[in-house]
């Protein structure tokens, strides 16, 4: 991706996570230093904004922390307190910036960025919902926050299970995560998704597709490694490389149409919104699969020419003995 566009991407995606992190920090003033330290370590991938190629190394400490959290949670059997509680609370505190780091640290992989954004938004909604159940004064302790967070998630899973077993989405159990719709958060979330996708329209260096090449064998070393000057260079100069104009607004139109469709269905038949989203997504994937499959079908064998056999490097035509 163009480095200039990367800057805009950071500016567009960052605010929603900064908002989530800031809201959480304001609400949990007075937590132990261990929790803040853990949050700092978890937020290390944020540095990928400057060094995207070092993202794996930046993720390594947080991965170790996640493993530790899983072990602590497994053995605690209940909401942990003390250092264990600080550890988990600090992890939750740093998670928005962790997701932000991944979203902006993988500019060449839109899928990963999108997934990080969506998961980060989900985590932020869960955090906001947990905070909403706690009194703002005095500030909740780590264990209180963790209890609220786990309760919210538990209730949400319970409601989902109830809905799936027959109660349905409309008129059934209440979903704790469904009701959160802070206007600032909503605006920042849309800014983030726009900032994630729109710079791709002007992307100039999408990775090239691997072109099939003949496999290398045990070659003799190149006889002359430094080529001499060419006295009789080709008379026809190569054409220059033209930069592509970009993707155009077609994908944006597709996104707008999808959102409009979602809204219209939500207004007309809210009970079927999620069902129709599922069906629409499956139809799109199916259609895409059919297009790709049609290309591969043998009905038009000239459409997909077979790869050439390896260039003959050895004489194959046997000549009859000449007298």
């Amino acid at each position: 991706m163009n480095p200039d566009l990367r800057r805009y991407r950071v500016l567009a995606v960052g605010p929603v996570f900064a908002f989530a992190m800031g809201s959480l920090l304001v609400a949990v003033v007075g937590w132990s230093p261990l929790a803040y330290l853990v949050a700092l370590v978890v937020a290390l991938p944020l540095l990928a904004a400057a060094w995207p190629d070092r993202l794996p190394w930046l993720l390594a400490p947080s991965m170790a922390l996640f493993l530790l959290v899983a072990v602590v949670t497994w053995f605690a059997q209940t909401v942990p307190t003390g250092a264990g509680g600080d550890l988990i609370a600090g992890t939750l505190l740093g998670l928005p910036l962790w997701f932000l780091g991944i979203a902006i640290g993988t500019p060449e992989r839109p899928g990963i960025s999108l997934l990080a954004l969506e998961a980060g938004l989900l985590e932020s909604v869960a955090t906001f919902s947990a905070l909403a159940t706690l009194p703002s004064d005095p500030s909740p302790t780590e264990s209180e926050f963790l209890t609220a967070w786990f309760l919210i998630d538990g209730h949400h899973l319970g409601a989902l299970a109830s809905a799936l077993t027959g109660a349905g989405l409309v008129g059934g159990p209440s979903f704790p995560l469904a009701s959160y719709a802070d206007p600032v958060f909503v605006a920042l979330a849309f800014l983030a998704v726009g900032g994630l996708l729109l710079p791709m329209l002007r992307s100039e260096n999408a990775p090239t597709v691997g072109v099939p090449r003949p496999p290398r064998r045990d070659l003799a070393p190149t006889v002359r490694r430094v080529p001499p000057p060419i006295l009789y260079a080709t008379a026809l100069p190569p054409t220059g490389s033209r930069p592509p104009p970009g993707a155009g607004l077609l994908p944006v139109a597709g996104a707008v149409l999808a959102v409009l469709g979602f809204e219209v269905v939500g207004l007309v038949a809210p009970a079927y919104t999620f069902t129709l989203v599922t069906l629409g997504a499956l139809a799109a994937v199916l259609f895409l699969g059919l297009l790709v499959r049609a290309r591969r079908s043998p009905r038009n064998p000239t459409a997909v020419p077979a790869l050439p056999k390896r260039a003959t490097s050895r004489p194959s035509a046997a000549r009859p003995p000449s007298a």
Binding site: L250, P251, A258, F274, T278
Partner: peptide, 27 residues
């Protein structure tokens, strides 16, 4: 994830992103 959260905002974000990518690929 949007379906799991049953949150309109999250679902809308996902729909927009999926619509963007799927339109480009299908086109």
């Amino acid at each position: 994830i949007g379906l799991y959260s049953v949150n309109g905002v999250l679902e809308l974000v996902a729909v927009a992103a999926f619509g963007f990518l799927a339109t480009e690929m299908i086109a």
